[in-house]
Design a protein around this nucleic acid. Structure first.
Lengths: 229, 229
DNA sequence: AGGTAACCATACTGGTCGGTATACTCGCAG
DNA sequence: CTGCGAGTATACCGACCAGTATGGTTACCT
């Protein structure tokens, strides 16, 4: 019974009761006040845990931050797909529903996108959390592109396999994303998906900063217009 | 000859050589590394100034942060209008040019929108910088709405005055911003301006986080499509 | 001549930062 | 019964935090 290398655990796994409490408290405080604004002492205190335990579980504050972001991504994606699956929608409706779900989510998470906020603090460094941020952004972009493809191809609920995609390199080119000329003939799903992704990202910040309280409704109407061309 | 109450200056004005140096250094460091990541000691050091001088000019770190944001807003708005005025464009072209200017700006400012980043760190508090953030966001929204109005008044009938609007309070409703239904008849300029503002905000974060390197080109094509409906 | 604004330099406060060290207790599985 | 993982408690480290105190040096403006 090879129990995953029972011995020798250099990088600790935080899946213990105390570790869970730490992660829960860290998630709440980091999100509400920012990463740099919260010290490990306070997290340990509010989790009812000693600093030693915190460091035994996570190794460093940076690792704890990365764990916080990873947990956040996991929860959001699970929530999103649960509501998406329960809706039974398809085609354009399904794509627009994503904006509706994000709207509800944003109402309950008044500090906005945790990944954008974290990027403001740790972006441009070699912080381990950056990988998680990038992964989430990439994921949402792909989701919108895939849903746009389904919406425009006569609504096929099929898996549509995006072709492994793979992490690959950073820049991929996408060759100008269809300039400004009114190519009314047929804007490809990739472009429309990317456009709607921008509406999604924009609605998140516009909603959070308070400039556009109804940002998601506005984004929805714009997305519908882009799909209906 | 009342020279603005020559005596008694409780709130200092930072318009002195040393003050300018402090502000310049602060702007660079705050933008590049974040507000909480930079201490006043380092700012004073790199500006070749003592901490005493820094506090004589600005009073507190929070006030210095607010000054940094104010300066940033000023520079951006001046740059934007200079390029806008030099272009001689009008109508839809003029609106799309804003996205082009923002694209160039974003290429030179790789850490993204200073106000979004600052909001991630001080949002939700009573920090004096929040007023500046809000003002900038509001300004860009108004700009897009006004330009959308100009762009659409030249080709579409029924100007449909939105009714004074005015600054008023925070929430203004805007009554659902035209839900999802395909009201192809005529989307009002206010709504289109708001939609394009979302594209602008989204492009900023998508470009900065690296998910969409060509975010502004994509935003441009989407904005053109929304205007050409 | 004297006042004052704008600077310099050094030193200090009380607190917090991320991270480590030491030593002890508990429950469980070999 | 022993060894170990998970946890407790306390104390410590050097560095940095925002902000203040004291005192001295220019240069300009009445």
């Amino acid at each position: 019974m090879p129990r995953t290398t029972t011995r020798r655990r250099r990088t600790p796994n935080p899946a213990t009761p105390a570790g869970e409490r730490v992660l829960a408290v860290a998630a709440e405080l980091f999100y509400a006040h920012g990463i740099r604004a919260i010290g490990v002492d306070r997290i340990a205190d509010e989790a009812g845990v000693t600093k030693k335990t915190l460091y035994d579980r996570f190794g460093s504050k940076d690792a704890l931050v990365a764990a916080y972001l990873g947990r956040r991504e996991e929860v959001w994606q699970k929530h999103l797909h649960a509501r998406l699956a329960a809706s039974g929608t398809s085609g354009a409706e399904r794509l627009l529903l994503v904006l509706g779900i994000a709207s509800d989510w944003a109402d309950k998470n008044e500090r906005g996108c945790a990944f954008v906020n974290a990027h403001a603090e740790i972006g441009g460094t070699d912080h381990p959390g950056n990988a998680v941020i990038r992964a989430d952004k990439e994921y949402m972009l792909r989701l919108f592109v895939d849903l746009a493809r389904e919406a425009l191809s006569g609504e096929r609920p099929g898996s549509a396999g995006p072709g492994d995609a793979g992490p690959g390199g950073a820049g991929r080119g996408e060759c100008d994303a269809g300039a400004g000329r009114p190519d009314d003939g047929g804007p490809d799903p990739e472009t429309i998906g990317r456009q709607i992704h921008l509406l999604y990202e924009g609605a998140l910040t516009a909603h959070t900063t308070g400039v556009q309280p109804n940002a998601f409704a506005t984004a929805r109407s714009a997305a519908a217009a882009l799909l209906a061309r």
